[in-house]
Design a protein around this nucleic acid. Sequence first.
DNA 1: GTAGAAAGAATGATCGATTTTTATGGTCGG
DNA 2: CCGACCATAAAAATCGATCATTCTTTCTAC
Lengths: 231, 231
Amino acid sequence: MLEIAGDKAAPLSEQAILCLRSDILSGTLAPGLQLKLDRLKDHYGFSSSPLREALNRLAADGLVVIEDRRGFFVAPISIDDIREITRLRQLLEPEALSDSISNGDDAWEAQIISAHYRLERQEQRLKNNGASEKPFILDAEWADLHREFHRSLLAACNSPKLLHMRETLFYQAERYWHLWAMNHPAPPSRGSNHDRLRDAVLERDIVRSSDLLKNHISQTTEIVVKYLEQE
Amino acid sequence: MLEIAGDKAAPLSEQAILCLRSDILSGTLAPGLQLKLDRLKDHYGFSSSPLREALNRLAADGLVVIEDRRGFFVAPISIDDIREITRLRQLLEPEALSDSISNGDDAWEAQIISAHYRLERQEQRLKNNGASEKPFILDAEWADLHREFHRSLLAACNSPKLLHMRETLFYQAERYWHLWAMNHPAPPSRGSNHDRLRDAVLERDIVRSSDLLKNHISQTTEIVVKYLEQE
DNA sequence: GTAGAAAGAATGATCGATTTTTATGGTCGG
DNA sequence: CCGACCATAAAAATCGATCATTCTTTCTAC
């Protein structure tokens, strides 16, 4: 049976999730904002049913909070919150990474190399583009590739639940990075982190790569927290 | 539609969650079963909108899986799955417990003592009731009290996200306990586990209580896994 | 002038019907 | 007898309208 392109349109509720998540992560929908269905309907063109479905699922990811009979709100942000996210990422990601390194095969390695290469290329492109004053994270393409690189590192972990939890935390953290980046023209300039991480993982050095990963997570969070504190 | 009770009625979608979760945990809705909306509508009396909302939220808890355009299914069970649940519980629960022990105040201690007392009383009642051949977990009241006791131990942990993750895992594990219990007339007879756990926690002994908790988790899982393997 | 009640508007929650998509069963040509 | 193909039935997805609750504003009484 041949696969025809037209058939596989995702359900509207899925599309709504993508739109909403994207706008929440980018801050277009500000933290704390009430998400009124009428507004969303007008803005996105989805009807209320798929929107409610999307909002319910995003609530599970911690990007939306539900207050019974009062509606949906973009999850608020706080220093405590990003600290919590960081702590859990530091607990879960090394666990997943250790698994992944133990189980990964050639295809897994290849995927990592590929993802890293694409990420690096995009960084080069951005640097040359005169947009060099803009932090990478603000570029949607970079954000996708960055997410994909980190995912590839853990892809051989055989615990779907662990990966899922880790993914929701990653999304939650991304929102803070955006927030920081929007107020900071200077790029983070910690480019070689990903290189070292990739190398340590490919060398199957669990201890070193876990440390690098934990440091990577800490560093990013510290930058964000410093910014939030001075607000 | 007459709603007699005052204004504090939960939304139908919330009620639907409770009904569905209860029936999934108890096995009334068997693992793997497709949850057709028409059937659910007839059986529970909710309309499709609240049902879909409930199913979406239960999917976030891992009790339901969604297949796009094909519907909702009760999450399947497997040995790998319970092992995964167990592994994550062993990772998260000690982390939360350590927090809780560090932060807990008198009210927290009192809550633990109270929850433990109520659990023990219910166990006594069940033992005397001639239903002594039935594992405790099959008694809905016991299951609630048991859940509450474990929750109380961790209640002083200051990471809501951690507690939430831990809670979803606990629910997922409960389903396996039920499954085992339905095929085993003999009670588990590991009664003093909870006593020791309570004492260690109240003594603020993080190491010992973490060990006890991890053992408690392992023991239960091993029983379940042994049962599943012989199937 | 202010508190409290009540009307009105806004919005979430729910429903029943309609539209799309998937599953099923039967027929035909090989 | 097997597999591709169509027709039909089943079910999910979606929609637009209605119902119920919460929020806002207005009005009245003190």
